[in-house]
């Protein structure tokens, strides 16, 4: 059986909220190392890869590998019943029809229990190659969100260019052009505000802003976001979570002129 207890329901609520507009039905693959999810959007342009490591739960028990086929819209309805600070426990049998969710508020001695019906999902899994990215940029997640939202007001696409001097986001639209350049910047007192650039070669790629704005719904999960780029490969956008867990998004580039 599976039994996984999260100190705060907030984490799962935010993860599901961040991905539910991108993917609808997906398997939560549970094994002794944790709970993983990999799913592509309908157009096969973006991919969500979530890993909640066993260490992120306390306690965590998973006797047998189990895939929990969940409709995220339905899960959202159930999670709405959990307060952010509630202790959340996920439970399932070895061959489950339902996922049992328990929300506890230890202050008020409230215990809520929900059973979510599961579905059989035949999910297409992709092998994501280990990539040595040419550019890795770490920046505040709210800054990245602001840039994407601002540029989307002008255009559907953004060009991202990185050099050792900085990272430049630019777009061209019907009403005009826009560009934002961030230079490497270290703030000793507020390390969350740092912009860090590691570069082995310059990169220039074009991406759909619609997807990037969607990924930015995860900004509430982490103060910083990491962008990993290499020419002609999908962009990796990573939000690191506590306990080496993560929420990653991959986005295929736009190619050719």
């Amino acid at each position: 059986m599976l039994e996984a207890r999260l100190e705060q329901a907030d984490l799962l609520k935010k993860v599901v909220d961040a991905i539910k507009d991108l993917v609808q039905d997906c398997n939560f693959d549970c094994n002794d190392s944790g709970v993983a999810l990999q799913a592509m959007d309908n157009s096969h342009v973006a991919l969500v890869s979530m890993m909640l490591k066993a260490e992120s739960f306390s306690p965590y028990r998973c006797d047998r590998n189990v895939a929990l086929g969940v409709n995220l819209t339905s899960l959202t309805k159930v999670l709405r019943a959990a307060q952010n600070e509630d202790i959340l426990t996920l439970k399932a049998e070895d061959a489950p029809d339902v996922l049992n969710l328990v929300f506890e508020n230890t202050d008020s001695d409230r215990l809520s229990e929900y059973d979510l019906k599961l579905m059989d999902i035949d999910q297409e899994h992709l092998g994501i190659p280990d990539t040595e990215y040419a550019a890795t940029i770490s920046l505040p997640s709210v800054e990245f969100r602001r840039i994407c939202v601002d540029l989307m007001a002008l255009s559907e696409s953004v060009s991202i260019e990185t050099s050792k001097d900085g990272i430049k986001f630019s777009c061209a639209g019907d009403i005009g052009n826009g560009a934002v350049t961030l230079r490497p910047n270290t703030n000793v007192e507020k390390p969350d505000q740092n912009v860090e650039i590691e570069l082995t070669e310059p990169v220039a790629l074009t991406f759909s802003l619609k997807y990037l704005v969607n990924f930015c719904k995860a900004a509430g999960l982490s103060k910083t976001v990491k962008l990993c780029l290499s020419n002609e490969v999908p962009l990796l956008v990573e939000y690191a979570l506590a306990g080496s867990s993560y929420l990653r998004f991959y986005l295929a580039p736009k190619i050719g002129d």
Binding site: H44, V45, L126, G127, V233, P234, A252, K254
Partner: peptide, 14 residues
């Protein structure tokens, strides 16, 4: 204009 690629072009079957 550039065209949107899909992930299948880059990521194979495991």
């Amino acid at each position: 204009p550039p065209t949107q690629a899909t992930l299948g072009k880059f990521f194979g079957k495991p």
